[in-house]
Design a protein around this nucleic acid. Structure first.
Lengths: 238, 238
DNA sequence: CGCAGGACGTAGGACGTCGTATCTCCTCAC
DNA sequence: GTGAGGAGATACGACGTCCTACGTCCTGCG
């Protein structure tokens, strides 16, 4: 933790002022902010300074800038986390699987813990939708097409019953980082689609039986598969 | 996921170019970057554009700007996540405990899952250090002083044996967000220090016995306490 | 009445200038 | 010879102004 949003430098002051403005006025995502001209007048700074501050806030997805239209309150998504983690993983240990393994472990712990809770909250309708996704995976697999998007969708759908908006975003962020780094490393192999399909189906089956321990176990097995793939990929054996 | 690091706009192009430069040259945290003047020449853009791009990357802790000295590769910490989550929590549901509860649930799931693994990896030396922290908590509690920093330290120390650098940073981020939002809400109450101390000690005791299930249970109890505190605080009953 | 084109507002980008912080290295006193 | 202090170089911080690109909305023509 360095400074940020607690800084004495001029520019950070502007950032905090904009954030404070949003908070004070109770603005929600998508609400319009004052124009750059208004901000430079209200804060008594130049337009360049305003723009630099807005750019920084844009990088944090706290504001959204639309060219020729205006500045708006952002979605405060986890995009910054994705960018930061991707960079971090790519830059540290350039060809060491360790950095990716760390992300994978966090995902694993999260999903294994969450799936237990899901077993008691998931609805039959959601299970049907999950089943449908798995079926589509199966079709894609038989057609020889990879299905990263379906995989993502599955894991996102899995946790809606928790009513926790942060969970799918966080998992989505880790998923995206993993995918991006894997892509940058070249090993895009999505091997053995039938195995992947089966493991996803096992999870749905356990959930349908309201078997928390079984679901957790199925999820653990699923992650063993991903881990094996990652390690193999980094070693260039696959 | 919006755009960011995949954009066609001029400025994002500059950001990506800087990141690419770091990646290509294999620069690590603390390594010096070209000066703004060099960047504006290499990329064929104005200094303002360079500065806006660097400001954005600074917000992501991908670069670090030192006034009068130069620009350096940043630590790629989770500071952006802290800022983003704090903003998100403060802006959405302004006086609803739900947003904080989401963060708490993620922390809970993470720590409960991690503590099981720790039970098999933690060393005696680490347990001694944890014990020492708890003792200091006890002393602070008896003196009537709150000990948020010791609490943080305890949870950070807990997971070093996993060898996963991401875990403590992630938990630290959630912890900081929680604390900051709680502070902004006014309910700084840290009630019943003796109970908190006992719960921490229970965790250490279970770990010392290599009792994974017991440690997880102790952690769960610990979080029940935090949750109760949070809800009470937001209702203004405490 | 409908739609195409232009006026207007707003952000994107560039250039030049001055201010300020930090480091380096030289000088001078001891 | 050594170390403290200051001059200068280097690099970021901030400002003002201009022009361009983009979107919206209104107006006027068909």
């Amino acid at each position: 933790m360095r400074r940020m949003s607690a800084g004495e430098p001029r520019n950070n002051r502007i950032q905090r002022a904009v954030v404070q403005l949003i908070l004070d006025r109770g603005l929600g995502p998508g609400a319009p902010l004052p124009t750059e001209a208004e901000l430079m007048e209200d804060l008594g700074v130049s337009r360049n300074s305003v723009r630099e501050a807005l750019k920084a806030l844009q990088a944090l997805d706290i504001v959204e800038i639309r060219h020729g239209y205006g500045t708006y309150v952002g979605q405060a998504s986890l995009t910054p986390l994705v960018d930061g983690l991707t960079f971090r993983t790519l830059t540290r240990h350039a060809d060491d699987p360790g950095a990716l393994a760390e992300i994978l472990q966090v995902r694993e712990v999260l999903e294994e813990g969450l799936i237990r809770r899901v077993a008691t909250t998931v609805t039959e309708a959601e299970l049907d939708r999950l089943e449908a996704v798995v079926t589509r995976m199966e079709l894609a697999g038989r057609a020889g097409r990879p299905f990263p998007e379906l995989d993502h969708q599955f894991h996102e759908l899995l946790y809606v019953s928790l009513g926790n908006a942060l969970v799918p975003q966080l998992l989505g962020a880790f998923w995206t980082v993993f995918r991006r780094v894997a892509g940058a490393r070249g090993w895009t192999a999505d091997p053995a689609p039938d195995v992947t399909v089966r493991r996803h189906r096992d999870i749905v089956t356990a959930l349908r039986a309201r078997d928390a321990a079984g679901a957790q176990q199925a999820m653990a097995v699923h992650f063993r598969g991903i881990e094996a793939r990652a390690v193999r990929g980094s070693w260039g054996v696959g």
